[in-house]
Amino acid sequence: MRRLAILLPAAWLLATVLAPLVILATIATATPSDGVPPYAPLLDWSGGGLPRVTASADAWQLLVADGYYLRALLFSLRIAAISALGCLLVGYPLALAITRAPAGWRAPLLLLALLPFWTGFLLRINAWIGLLKEDGWVSAALHAAGLLPPGRALLYTDAAMYLGIIHAYLPFAVLPIYARLSRLDPALAEAAADLGATPLRSFLTVTLPLSMPGVWAGLALVFIPAVGEYVIPELLGGPQAQTIGRVIWQEFFANRDWPQASAVALVLVALLVLPAALVQRAR
Protein backbone atom coordinates (compact mmCIF):
# COMPACT_ATOMS: atom_id res chain seq x y z
CA MET A 1 0.00 0.00 0.00
CA ARG A 2 2.77 2.35 0.98
CA ARG A 3 4.67 1.58 -2.18
CA LEU A 4 1.56 2.22 -4.27
CA ALA A 5 1.13 5.58 -2.55
CA ILE A 6 4.59 6.60 -3.72
CA LEU A 7 4.27 4.96 -7.11
CA LEU A 8 1.18 6.88 -8.17
CA PRO A 9 2.58 10.40 -7.74
CA ALA A 10 5.86 9.23 -9.24
CA ALA A 11 4.07 7.90 -12.33
CA TRP A 12 2.08 11.10 -12.58
CA LEU A 13 5.28 13.15 -12.35
CA LEU A 14 6.93 10.99 -14.99
CA ALA A 15 4.03 11.33 -17.42
CA THR A 16 3.25 15.01 -16.96
CA VAL A 17 6.61 16.58 -16.13
CA LEU A 18 9.60 14.45 -17.01
CA ALA A 19 8.39 12.99 -20.31
CA PRO A 20 7.37 16.39 -21.73
CA LEU A 21 10.72 17.83 -20.60
CA VAL A 22 12.61 15.09 -22.41
CA ILE A 23 10.56 15.70 -25.57
CA LEU A 24 11.20 19.44 -25.24
CA ALA A 25 14.94 18.85 -24.84
CA THR A 26 14.95 16.59 -27.90
CA ILE A 27 13.29 19.23 -30.05
CA ALA A 28 15.53 21.98 -28.65
CA THR A 29 18.62 20.21 -29.96
CA ALA A 30 17.12 19.33 -33.35
CA THR A 31 17.63 21.25 -36.60
CA PRO A 32 14.66 23.16 -38.05
CA SER A 33 13.61 21.85 -41.46
CA ASP A 34 10.73 22.04 -43.89
CA GLY A 35 8.52 19.11 -43.01
CA VAL A 36 5.91 17.68 -40.71
CA PRO A 37 6.96 18.19 -37.90
CA PRO A 38 9.16 21.13 -38.90
CA TYR A 39 12.45 19.81 -37.51
CA ALA A 40 14.83 17.02 -38.49
CA PRO A 41 14.68 13.97 -36.22
CA LEU A 42 17.55 13.77 -33.77
CA LEU A 43 18.26 10.14 -34.68
CA ASP A 44 18.30 9.34 -38.38
CA TRP A 45 17.64 5.61 -38.87
CA SER A 46 17.42 5.80 -42.67
CA GLY A 47 21.04 4.67 -43.21
CA GLY A 48 20.39 1.24 -41.71
CA GLY A 49 22.32 -0.12 -38.76
CA LEU A 50 23.34 2.50 -36.22
CA PRO A 51 21.39 5.78 -36.30
CA ARG A 52 23.11 8.99 -37.31
CA VAL A 53 22.81 11.71 -34.68
CA THR A 54 21.98 15.13 -36.07
CA ALA A 55 21.98 17.39 -33.04
CA SER A 56 22.36 21.13 -33.28
CA ALA A 57 23.27 23.78 -30.74
CA ASP A 58 22.08 26.64 -32.98
CA ALA A 59 19.02 27.37 -30.89
CA TRP A 60 21.15 27.63 -27.75
CA GLN A 61 23.73 29.82 -29.44
CA LEU A 62 21.08 32.26 -30.61
CA LEU A 63 19.54 32.21 -27.15
CA VAL A 64 22.78 33.47 -25.66
CA ALA A 65 23.90 35.73 -28.50
CA ASP A 66 20.61 37.60 -29.03
CA GLY A 67 19.71 39.94 -26.17
CA TYR A 68 16.06 39.79 -27.26
CA TYR A 69 15.41 36.64 -25.21
CA LEU A 70 17.10 37.91 -22.07
CA ARG A 71 15.17 41.18 -22.25
CA ALA A 72 11.88 39.32 -22.62
CA LEU A 73 12.77 37.05 -19.73
CA LEU A 74 13.69 39.92 -17.41
CA PHE A 75 10.54 41.76 -18.42
CA SER A 76 8.44 38.67 -17.61
CA LEU A 77 10.13 38.26 -14.24
CA ARG A 78 9.34 41.88 -13.45
CA ILE A 79 5.70 41.47 -14.46
CA ALA A 80 5.39 38.33 -12.35
CA ALA A 81 7.02 39.99 -9.33
CA ILE A 82 4.79 43.06 -9.50
CA SER A 83 1.70 40.89 -10.04
CA ALA A 84 2.58 38.66 -7.09
CA LEU A 85 3.03 41.71 -4.87
CA GLY A 86 -0.25 43.12 -6.14
CA CYS A 87 -2.04 39.85 -5.36
CA LEU A 88 -0.50 39.92 -1.88
CA LEU A 89 -1.57 43.52 -1.23
CA VAL A 90 -5.15 42.75 -2.24
CA GLY A 91 -5.26 39.15 -1.05
CA TYR A 92 -3.82 39.49 2.45
CA PRO A 93 -6.38 42.02 3.75
CA LEU A 94 -9.08 39.94 2.07
CA ALA A 95 -7.93 36.74 3.77
CA LEU A 96 -7.54 38.54 7.11
CA ALA A 97 -11.01 40.05 6.86
CA ILE A 98 -12.53 36.64 6.15
CA THR A 99 -10.73 35.08 9.15
CA ARG A 100 -11.92 37.84 11.46
CA ALA A 101 -15.51 37.68 10.18
CA PRO A 102 -18.16 35.97 12.36
CA ALA A 103 -17.85 32.18 12.10
CA GLY A 104 -21.06 31.75 10.09
CA TRP A 105 -19.90 34.25 7.49
CA ARG A 106 -16.51 32.76 6.74
CA ALA A 107 -17.52 29.98 4.37
CA PRO A 108 -19.82 32.18 2.23
CA LEU A 109 -17.23 34.98 2.15
CA LEU A 110 -14.51 32.60 1.06
CA LEU A 111 -16.84 31.24 -1.58
CA LEU A 112 -17.48 34.78 -2.83
CA ALA A 113 -13.74 35.42 -3.06
CA LEU A 114 -13.36 32.27 -5.15
CA LEU A 115 -16.53 32.66 -7.18
CA PRO A 116 -14.93 34.53 -10.11
CA PHE A 117 -12.68 31.51 -10.45
CA TRP A 118 -15.65 29.42 -11.50
CA THR A 119 -16.15 31.45 -14.66
CA GLY A 120 -14.07 30.50 -17.67
CA PHE A 121 -10.65 32.14 -17.66
CA LEU A 122 -10.97 33.49 -21.21
CA LEU A 123 -14.44 34.78 -20.44
CA ARG A 124 -13.10 36.81 -17.54
CA ILE A 125 -10.28 38.26 -19.65
CA ASN A 126 -12.72 39.13 -22.43
CA ALA A 127 -14.97 40.82 -19.88
CA TRP A 128 -12.01 43.03 -18.95
CA ILE A 129 -11.58 43.94 -22.64
CA GLY A 130 -15.16 45.21 -22.62
CA LEU A 131 -14.61 47.22 -19.43
CA LEU A 132 -11.24 48.71 -20.38
CA LYS A 133 -11.76 49.65 -24.03
CA GLU A 134 -12.27 53.27 -24.96
CA ASP A 135 -16.04 53.34 -24.43
CA GLY A 136 -15.96 50.71 -21.68
CA TRP A 137 -17.19 51.48 -18.15
CA VAL A 138 -13.79 51.66 -16.47
CA SER A 139 -12.22 53.86 -19.13
CA ALA A 140 -15.37 56.02 -19.22
CA ALA A 141 -15.27 56.48 -15.45
CA LEU A 142 -11.59 57.47 -15.62
CA HIS A 143 -12.38 59.90 -18.45
CA ALA A 144 -15.15 61.47 -16.36
CA ALA A 145 -12.80 61.79 -13.39
CA GLY A 146 -10.19 63.42 -15.60
CA LEU A 147 -7.64 60.70 -14.81
CA LEU A 148 -7.37 59.51 -18.41
CA PRO A 149 -7.04 61.90 -21.38
CA PRO A 150 -9.97 61.63 -23.83
CA GLY A 151 -9.41 59.38 -26.82
CA ARG A 152 -7.24 57.05 -24.74
CA ALA A 153 -8.20 53.71 -23.28
CA LEU A 154 -6.76 51.57 -20.52
CA LEU A 155 -6.91 48.55 -22.79
CA TYR A 156 -3.56 47.53 -24.35
CA THR A 157 -1.49 49.17 -21.60
CA ASP A 158 0.71 47.61 -18.91
CA ALA A 159 -1.84 48.73 -16.32
CA ALA A 160 -4.56 46.67 -18.03
CA MET A 161 -2.24 43.66 -18.11
CA TYR A 162 -1.46 43.91 -14.38
CA LEU A 163 -5.14 44.33 -13.61
CA GLY A 164 -5.96 41.19 -15.57
CA ILE A 165 -3.18 39.09 -14.02
CA ILE A 166 -3.94 40.19 -10.45
CA HIS A 167 -7.64 39.54 -10.90
CA ALA A 168 -7.05 36.13 -12.48
CA TYR A 169 -4.50 34.92 -9.94
CA LEU A 170 -5.97 36.45 -6.77
CA PRO A 171 -7.48 33.18 -5.45
CA PHE A 172 -4.00 31.60 -5.54
CA ALA A 173 -2.84 34.24 -3.04
CA VAL A 174 -5.99 34.32 -0.90
CA LEU A 175 -6.29 30.58 -0.30
CA PRO A 176 -2.90 29.74 1.27
CA ILE A 177 -2.92 32.94 3.34
CA TYR A 178 -6.44 32.22 4.56
CA ALA A 179 -5.54 28.61 5.32
CA ARG A 180 -2.66 29.80 7.48
CA LEU A 181 -4.51 32.64 9.19
CA SER A 182 -7.57 30.56 10.02
CA ARG A 183 -5.40 28.04 11.86
CA LEU A 184 -3.80 30.65 14.13
CA ASP A 185 -4.98 30.37 17.71
CA PRO A 186 -7.10 33.48 18.50
CA ALA A 187 -5.72 33.23 22.03
CA LEU A 188 -2.36 34.51 20.73
CA ALA A 189 -3.85 37.84 19.65
CA GLU A 190 -5.81 38.02 22.92
CA ALA A 191 -2.62 37.40 24.89
CA ALA A 192 -0.89 40.19 22.99
CA ALA A 193 -3.78 42.53 23.75
CA ASP A 194 -3.76 41.53 27.42
CA LEU A 195 -0.08 42.39 27.55
CA GLY A 196 -0.85 45.85 26.26
CA ALA A 197 -0.11 45.59 22.55
CA THR A 198 -2.14 47.84 20.25
CA PRO A 199 -4.03 45.97 17.47
CA LEU A 200 -1.42 47.18 14.94
CA ARG A 201 1.47 46.03 17.14
CA SER A 202 -0.19 42.70 17.78
CA PHE A 203 -0.70 42.24 14.02
CA LEU A 204 2.89 43.17 13.16
CA THR A 205 4.57 41.13 15.88
CA VAL A 206 2.23 38.14 16.20
CA THR A 207 -0.17 37.59 13.29
CA LEU A 208 2.02 38.66 10.37
CA PRO A 209 5.15 36.64 11.29
CA LEU A 210 3.04 33.55 11.97
CA SER A 211 1.28 33.89 8.60
CA MET A 212 4.51 34.21 6.59
CA PRO A 213 4.49 30.60 5.31
CA GLY A 214 1.08 31.32 3.78
CA VAL A 215 2.40 34.57 2.32
CA TRP A 216 5.37 32.81 0.71
CA ALA A 217 3.14 30.09 -0.68
CA GLY A 218 0.74 32.68 -2.09
CA LEU A 219 3.56 34.68 -3.68
CA ALA A 220 5.04 31.55 -5.28
CA LEU A 221 1.66 30.33 -6.55
CA VAL A 222 1.10 33.66 -8.33
CA PHE A 223 4.68 34.34 -9.41
CA ILE A 224 5.46 31.01 -11.07
CA PRO A 225 2.55 30.80 -13.54
CA ALA A 226 2.62 34.57 -14.13
CA VAL A 227 6.19 34.42 -15.52
CA GLY A 228 5.06 32.28 -18.45
CA GLU A 229 1.68 33.98 -18.82
CA TYR A 230 0.80 34.35 -22.49
CA VAL A 231 -2.93 34.96 -22.79
CA ILE A 232 -3.30 38.04 -20.57
CA PRO A 233 -0.37 40.05 -22.04
CA GLU A 234 -1.62 39.08 -25.51
CA LEU A 235 -5.23 40.13 -24.93
CA LEU A 236 -4.90 43.03 -22.49
CA GLY A 237 -1.30 44.21 -22.83
CA GLY A 238 0.01 46.48 -25.54
CA PRO A 239 2.48 45.56 -28.27
CA GLN A 240 5.30 46.80 -26.03
CA ALA A 241 4.62 43.96 -23.56
CA GLN A 242 6.98 41.41 -25.15
CA THR A 243 6.82 38.71 -22.48
CA ILE A 244 8.67 35.41 -22.66
CA GLY A 245 5.35 33.64 -23.31
CA ARG A 246 4.75 35.80 -26.37
CA VAL A 247 8.32 35.24 -27.54
CA ILE A 248 7.78 31.46 -27.37
CA TRP A 249 4.54 31.85 -29.34
CA GLN A 250 6.38 33.94 -31.92
CA GLU A 251 9.18 31.40 -32.33
CA PHE A 252 6.73 28.53 -32.56
CA PHE A 253 4.07 30.04 -34.82
CA ALA A 254 5.46 33.10 -36.62
CA ASN A 255 9.02 31.80 -37.18
CA ARG A 256 8.03 28.10 -37.20
CA ASP A 257 11.28 27.44 -35.35
CA TRP A 258 10.27 24.68 -32.94
CA PRO A 259 13.85 24.07 -31.70
CA GLN A 260 14.20 27.74 -30.76
CA ALA A 261 10.78 27.81 -29.07
CA SER A 262 11.65 24.63 -27.14
CA ALA A 263 15.00 26.03 -26.02
CA VAL A 264 13.37 29.20 -24.67
CA ALA A 265 10.68 27.12 -22.95
CA LEU A 266 13.32 24.89 -21.33
CA VAL A 267 15.18 27.89 -19.97
CA LEU A 268 11.92 29.16 -18.52
CA VAL A 269 11.19 25.83 -16.84
CA ALA A 270 14.72 25.57 -15.44
CA LEU A 271 14.50 29.09 -14.14
CA LEU A 272 11.29 28.34 -12.26
CA VAL A 273 11.93 24.77 -11.12
CA LEU A 274 15.56 25.01 -9.98
CA PRO A 275 15.07 27.74 -7.35
CA ALA A 276 11.97 25.96 -6.06
CA ALA A 277 13.93 22.70 -5.77
CA LEU A 278 16.80 24.46 -4.02
CA VAL A 279 14.43 26.03 -1.51
CA GLN A 280 12.92 22.62 -0.81
CA ARG A 281 16.35 21.14 -0.21
CA ALA A 282 17.44 24.00 2.04
CA ARG A 283 14.50 23.21 4.29
Binding site: P37, P38, A254, R256
Partner: peptide, 9 residues
Protein backbone atom coordinates in the same frame (compact mmCIF):
# COMPACT_ATOMS: atom_id res chain seq x y z
CA UNK B 1 -0.22 30.86 -37.70
CA UNK B 2 -2.83 28.77 -35.93
CA UNK B 3 -3.58 26.82 -39.10
CA UNK B 4 0.07 26.30 -39.93
CA UNK B 5 0.97 25.27 -36.39
CA UNK B 6 -1.72 22.59 -36.40
CA UNK B 7 -0.82 21.24 -39.84
CA UNK B 8 2.92 21.16 -39.11
CA UNK B 9 2.30 19.21 -35.92
Amino acid sequence: ETLEGKLLA
